[in-house]
Design a protein around this nucleic acid. Structure first.
Lengths: 243, 243
DNA sequence: CGCTGTCTTGAGTACGATCAAGTACGGTGG
DNA sequence: CCACCGTACTTGATCGTACTCAAGACAGCG
């Protein structure tokens, strides 16, 4: 929880958090009018950086705010009653976390930085009040919540290991392209263990499927460096990709 | 899609859809002030009945409205690209369906009646406009969306057959109790095939786990008639129950 | 250089799926 | 009322995918 005090001379610049952000078109303010974004600026505060392994919030924490990833990667996960970790998602810049905490006003999962990461803090009550005044912001919030429901539905499907791995790779590819990065050549921010856990597979299985995909000429993979060689081929293997 | 024209003499009574509904404290109006519920009455229209097997909406349909189950059971499901059905949920009176369609403004799943069912139709745009005027309604909508995210997260977990079946039974039990029915003796509205599919298991596996639970004295099951004999025992078996 | 953690590879196993009968129920018509 | 049928459910036998256990390869780092 590193919410360091912000030097006064930065305050003016920080007021423009959203207006001047490169993620404007991907993040919460997507599709908002200029003047509406400026109202958002008033309540959004940058926070961090979190170092790799540092938590943004934990299960049971009071829910006060939503967070948008500004840079780096976050991972959300829960520990089930048998003590096993279940990764819920990886979150890229421009994506919101904490939406699942609105219902019981208490965080339902843990959010941790996979590498050095910064976030934008958006106090929920203020945000909801603002949403009541700005119809397009309210609609956008409903959309974002709705989207996460859909992602959960897809993840919960009954898929084979190959279907899971290919849709993971294609999902990462799509999200990276949206952020201006290469859709075919990227570096995974998370260890195999986290990928496996997210896909509800064993680490060894992910390793083996990567190998098989490589042998079949679908991808080129070297530790965390991945290259997609045959996107249509991967698409044929997977049953559903969110977004 | 049976939205029969409503006789004029019913119109006045129908205006009170929510205010006079026994599900008031479970459904969307939960926690709203009397006068706010009356505003909801203005836009909610009862619809149906749907007969068993009749669809409320299908994948790809334009998203115009959310629906609350009024009586009976609904099932939501998708058909994946390999042509296999994946049950997403069973919906009891007082529960909302269609929330996943807000994001792309198009239905993402199919909703079908498991038995004779009636619903309340709530046009989304009007509802969202009203939510901007009634803060408690807006918060309630955010909560309901958030809750569905959490349910999806739990369903997507990596669980054994016994964990899945026990949490299904306990989940049904909880939801039935909330609706004033017995929490320990109930009749399943859906065939084994649907339960199995929902839990990502084979029909035969569900049948076998039911048998095992019965042999262990946890439940008494006869076709669709279920009796929970040892709730703490079931709780020990399951890793997570939504709500 | 050796230590540590990550990742890969191999061998054996187990859980749940699939295949295959067989049974019981509920509806229909005689 | 019963005979018939179709569907749902159960039970048994076999199979296969992915897990577990185990060991080894490789990279990063003190």
């Amino acid at each position: 929880m590193s919410s360091q005090p912000v030097p006064a001379d930065l305050q003016r610049r920080l007021r423009k958090v959203c207006s001047s952000c490169s993620l404007l078109e991907l993040c919460l303010p997507m599709g908002l009018e200029r003047e509406d974004v400026e109202q958002l600026d008033e309540l959004v505060t940058p926070q961090g950086p979190l170092r790799a392994g540092e938590h943004l919030y934990r299960v049971g924490d009071d829910f006060k705010a939503l967070y948008a990833v500004r840079s780096g990667y976050l991972k959300t996960y829960i520990i089930d009653s048998a003590g096993r970790e279940q990764v819920l998602g990886f979150h890229l810049p421009g994506e919101l976390v904490g939406l699942d905490a609105i219902y019981p006003a208490r965080h339902q999962c843990n959010a941790v930085a996979l590498d050095t990461a910064t976030v934008c803090r958006m106090p929920y009550e203020q945000l909801a009040d603002l949403a009541a005044k700005i119809p397009s912001l309210q609609r956008q919030m409903f959309r974002l919540l709705s989207k996460d429901i859909h992602i959960g539905q897809i993840l919960s499907g009954d898929f084979t290991a190959e279907e899971r791995v290919s849709s993971f790779l294609l999902g990462m590819s799509t999200r990276l392209r949206q952020r201006g990065y290469s859709a075919t050549h990227f570096r995974l921010a998370m260890p195999r263990r986290d990928i496996a856990n997210y896909l509800r597979l064993a680490t060894e299985t992910v390793s083996r499927v990567f190998k098989r995909f490589q042998d079949e000429g679908l991808i080129e993979v070297e530790r965390r460096e991945v290259q997609l060689l045959d996107v249509p081929g991967l698409q044929r293997l997977c049953r559903a990709v969110p977004d």
